[in-house]
Computed example of a mutant assay.
Amino acid sequence: MFKFLTAILTVFSFSTFTALADDIVFDAPDGETSALVAQCLETEGVSYFEDSQSICYNSAIFPEQFLKLRDLPPAQRIIITSPGGNVATARLMSTILDERGEPAIIAGPCMSACAMVLLSGLDSIHIHHSAHIAVHGIAMMDYRTWWGWLKEDREPSAMALMTAQMGYDFGFTMHASGSEHMEKHLVGQDVDLDYIQTISDRMLEDARAEPCRVDPKDYWGMLDAMHLQTYIGDRITRMERFAQSWDDPSNAYYKDVTHPISDQTYIFKRDYEDKTCP
């Protein structure tokens, strides 16, 4: 995490202006918020900063961590940075955040269930310039595509289809359960399903163009400012310029540990090393 923080602060030490890109006007960073974010990124776990009456959630999304939110006093803001977690578990944390109602600052990595569930469920959002927002896996992949993905696009047999329909293909059941939770969550939060569908479709298209494939869950798709404005723009109160693509200067940390297959889709190098080629 220290390496990530150093990379972000180095890139943005000169970014004190409001910028216009892709028809979006970004807010200039403010020193007070950035100081709180820096403190949070250096503090692991779930903490309450008395001086600023701020909650720092710098943790994966596990029950032990997010349940601490219920016991913390009211805050002026919640800073969220998370590598993600189980989608079903994240929905429970989203409920707690709804109950608390404090404005949230998304900073540092907001990955997987953080981007798919927490971010899409918030009502008052400040996107900090340190944010790297990415969803996990080609979540909306159908069974036929999922089954043939690492099998040279072969069609599943009638028996395989029947097994899946009966719920006994446990690999696909695990894959599909995340999609079902996402759909229910987005409907419950009054967010268009295309929030996840468009990213999933884009990752699938990018992955098809690659001769070498990895497991569907090992693809990552970055969410940019235009995507956030389109689907949750009415909930965003401030948006600073954050990483928009893999080669974005502010994406220095992830360049070291990932392999890009398009401007906004990548695979972690540890997974890419185990790639499957037709």
Rank of each mutant, 00 (worst) to 15 (best):
F242N: 03
K184T: 01
F62Y: 12
L223K: 07
D123W: 02
A176V: 06
T258N: 02
F170R: 11
L20R: 04
P83W: 11
D206P: 07
K217P: 02
M116W: 03
V135W: 00
R144W: 04
F172D: 00
S250H: 08
A139F: 11
Q76Y: 10
P29E: 03
G137T: 14
Y143A: 12
A252G: 02
L92E: 13
E155R: 01
L67H: 08
M93Y: 04
D234R: 04
L186Q: 04
L118Q: 06
Q39L: 12
I61R: 12
L204G: 01
A176L: 14
T276D: 03
V257K: 13
E240K: 01
S177A: 09
C277S: 12
A225G: 11
E50R: 15
Q165A: 15
M182V: 08
P216G: 02
S52T: 05
S112G: 09
R77G: 09
T230G: 12
Y195A: 11
L5P: 02
Q197K: 01
C114A: 05
V87K: 01
A90Q: 06
T230D: 06
C212W: 10
T237G: 15
Y57V: 12
W146N: 00
T173H: 08
I24R: 12
C114W: 10
V46K: 07
D142H: 08
L69Q: 11
F12R: 10
V87L: 09
S130W: 00
K217Q: 07
M239H: 00
I80A: 08
F172Y: 13
P29D: 03
P211N: 03
M1R: 12
Q65K: 13
D201V: 15
M93F: 06
M203H: 05
R235H: 10
D22P: 05
Q53E: 12
P278W: 15
R77P: 06
D224H: 07
M116H: 10
C110I: 12
C277D: 02
A35H: 06
E50W: 14
G121K: 14
L186C: 07
T163D: 09
D27C: 02
D194F: 11
L119Y: 05
A113P: 08
R235C: 04
Y195R: 02
L118K: 15
H126D: 14
R213W: 08
Y168L: 03
F14W: 03
K68G: 06
R235P: 11
D215L: 09
F17I: 00
F242T: 13
R208I: 00
A207N: 06
P260T: 05
D190C: 03
P109T: 04
